[in-house]
Computed example of a mutant assay.
Amino acid sequence: MTWAPTEIRPGDIGAEPSVDGLLDHLRSNATLDKQLVEAKALVFRGFHVPENGLAGVLDLVLPDRLAYVHGNTPRTKVGENVYTSTEYPPEFTISMHNEMSYAHQWPSRLFFYCAVAPTTGGATPVVDGTAWLAALDDEVRERFLPGVRYTQNLHSGVGFGKSWQATFETEDRDQVEEFLAGNEADWEWKADGGLRITQHRRAVTEHPVTGELVWFNQADQWHVEALDRETAEAMLEILAEDEMPQTVSFADGSPIPAADVIQVRDRGLDVAVNVDWHAGDLMLIDNVAVGHGRRPFSGPRRVLVAMS
């Protein structure tokens, strides 16, 4: 049986179809943690939650929200550690990934809220990490098992990609170094004021509660093959590959074949399940058990994200 998120509607739980109905359910639900581990992803539909009613819901499901520090994608902060989803051109797909799996510490939960539904498309595909791992060829899995090495080149205000100031939400170098030292990362400040960071991380991990092995890395997104061909060629005319905003190799520094990352990307998307959005919908996911992405869309899509 194909895995899919568990949907919860007002009629399923005898609640009013309103934000107050959802709040009452969440306050009285002592088993939410267990329910999320078992379901891996929960989608709340039909509660018509307005954006100005979001804070109360977040305080119950993510009481200790994290800032998106060391995040590698462009977002806008819109509230107390609440952000827009990745601001990436709507015509492109965002491939499957577990949020910040490249980091020493990652969020265990992600929360999505749809304030404005897209006119067409724009689903958030979600993928069971065990199914993604199983979908890969044996030899590809074997090559990745020793782990991967991520490299970031963050400029100091002008350049490709994100600046180190935006990435770490500070202009204090000492604060950045303290963060990186505590997260087992290597770094060097470059002559132009930029920052180069190298991190050795796992490619597969064990879920802390269930013990399931899941695919857990973002190698396909950090690889040059993740860029559309026109963008990749244009950037490689200007920058050497090791000067790109982000790159990835196997743990020993050897290059990851393009065919490997294309297989990882495409098979993750192939086994994913689309979660289509209606205004007021919410989704809570276990960030280790489940990867997520974004389908192309048209219209004014506004999906907000928080993590803990």
Rank of each mutant, 00 (worst) to 15 (best):
T2P: 13
P5L: 09
D12M: 10
D12I: 08
I13Q: 09
P17I: 04
S18R: 09
L22F: 09
H25R: 10
H25C: 06
N29G: 03
L32Y: 04
L32M: 12
Q35S: 14
L36E: 02
L36D: 01
V37N: 05
K40N: 05
K40R: 15
L42G: 01
V43W: 00
F44I: 08
V49F: 08
P50W: 11
E51T: 10
E51H: 11
L54T: 03
L54A: 07
L54F: 12
A55N: 14
L58W: 00
L60H: 01
P63L: 07
D64P: 02
D64M: 09
Y68D: 02
G71F: 03
G71A: 09
T73I: 08
P74C: 06
T76R: 15
E80H: 15
Y83Q: 07
Y83A: 03
Y83P: 02
T84Y: 05
Y88R: 11
P90H: 08
E91S: 14
F92V: 13
F92M: 13
I94C: 10
N98W: 03
M100D: 02
H104A: 11
Q105K: 13
S108E: 13
S108Y: 07
F112Y: 10
A115C: 06
T119F: 12
T120D: 13
P125I: 05
V126L: 11
D128P: 05
D128Q: 08
T130V: 15
A135V: 06
D137A: 12
E139K: 09
E139L: 10
R141K: 13
L145C: 13
G147R: 05
R149S: 09
F160A: 14
F160N: 11
G161R: 05
W164K: 06
T167S: 13
E171N: 15
D172C: 12
R173P: 06
D174H: 14
Q175V: 14
V176R: 01
V176M: 09
E177F: 11
L180Q: 08
A181V: 15
G182R: 13
W187P: 03
W187M: 07
W187L: 08
A191I: 11
G194E: 03
R196L: 09
I197G: 00
T198M: 09
R201Y: 02
R201L: 03
R202T: 10
V204T: 06
V204E: 05
T210Q: 01
E212T: 05
Q218L: 05
A219V: 04
W222Q: 03
V224H: 08
E233I: 14
A234E: 14
L236D: 04
P245R: 11
P245W: 07
V248C: 07
S249R: 14
A251G: 11
A251L: 15
D252W: 12
S254P: 09
I256S: 01
A259V: 13
V261C: 04
Q263H: 11
Q263V: 07
D266P: 03
G268N: 02
G268F: 01
G268K: 00
L269F: 10
D270P: 04
A272M: 06
V275T: 01
D276H: 11
W277Y: 07
A279D: 09
G280V: 03
N287W: 04
A289F: 03
V290M: 07
G293H: 04
R294Q: 12
R294S: 08
R294G: 06
G299F: 08
V305W: 00
S308K: 06
